[in-house]
Design a protein around this nucleic acid. Sequence first.
DNA 1: GAAATCATTTGCCAAATGGCAAAAAAGCTA
DNA 2: TAGCTTTTTTGCCATTTGGCAAATGATTTC
Lengths: 189, 189
Amino acid sequence: MDQFIKYLLQFGNLNEPQIALISSKGEELELCKDDFYWEAGKPVKQIGFLIAGVIRVFYHNNKGEEITRYFIDENHLVLSGSTVDEAYTPSEYLCAVTDCKLVTFTKQDWKEISDTITGWDHLVQKVVATHHSEKVSRRSELVSQDGTERYLDFIRKFPTLVNRVPLSYIASYLGITQSSLSRIRKNIR
Amino acid sequence: MDQFIKYLLQFGNLNEPQIALISSKGEELELCKDDFYWEAGKPVKQIGFLIAGVIRVFYHNNKGEEITRYFIDENHLVLSGSTVDEAYTPSEYLCAVTDCKLVTFTKQDWKEISDTITGWDHLVQKVVATHHSEKVSRRSELVSQDGTERYLDFIRKFPTLVNRVPLSYIASYLGITQSSLSRIRKNIR
DNA sequence: GAAATCATTTGCCAAATGGCAAAAAAGCTA
DNA sequence: TAGCTTTTTTGCCATTTGGCAAATGATTTC
């Protein structure tokens, strides 16, 4: 929980009572490897903040293959792309790649925080914007590169993930087959 | 200007004085084809809303090639990924693909609006979140598909752009060469 | 430690894409 | 319309990647 507060404080000030309010609402949640945090079609009722571990975001393409859209690592909010106060049913799966620890808030509590703390929405907006630009900068160049460049880029941009995430997931994130990625790795060394 | 207000009202209520305030701050801006709206390295001083036209977002990769990151079409905010009130210097170029019309706000005025209108930040957050998820859903599947699928997807997701944007830009967005895209198009018909 | 399971590497060949340059088509201007 | 410029299409061949299946390696379980 402290970790979450500390993270928030990078984006704006919070006074003691505000911190107390936030702390009182947050609940710790642990996920084991391969547990789902979201499942496509099941409404999301929480906002989460990932304290430890890695979550993989994936969906199924029209051939039924799992496509990894993104990896979420420590110190990131897990919330729907659209806004918090609406009912939201994801079309993708969020699944723990490693054991995970999160702080979660019910949407109701989150709304209460938003109504109570002046500037909360603005602060969250900052956080979301930061994550967004990080996401974009991590993702965007993939399309314009060949497999080798994409993998090197992945290592650069997710340095802490390479050894925690199975090859097949990385390949699915990079948009190449596992075999190709394996060959690519061989050529790099 | 009315178009912008109308757009905002989809995301939340605004009363007359609020609308008047927003209207009084917005300035119309016209861009000709190939004009730059942002240039990498030059600070951004405005928030814009695209009323008409298409803007291409691109950057240069390490080989000096232009890579198209995204197309912005009508009824979208043009703002930095990070927050509004900070100095922001983009690392990418925004260039008009067609003649464009925008409504713009200085950061100062935008801040004034934010300070004056309760719920403004929240409303903007909704807009940004909507754009974001739209962007993600338009972008994300590209990596996992071959050229033909990507192009078909592009047509589906940017139906109004196909005939307004040069082939080379689309190819650069799809991460394939212009030649390949040309061949792909031949095979589709 | 052996068996079973899961993850990664490799071989083989087909298909897709890139690089380069020339040709063809489309658009623009005088 | 002719000439010029820009955009798009093609041909040729090298390289990359995919698909599939088998082999190898690693991990877990009993």
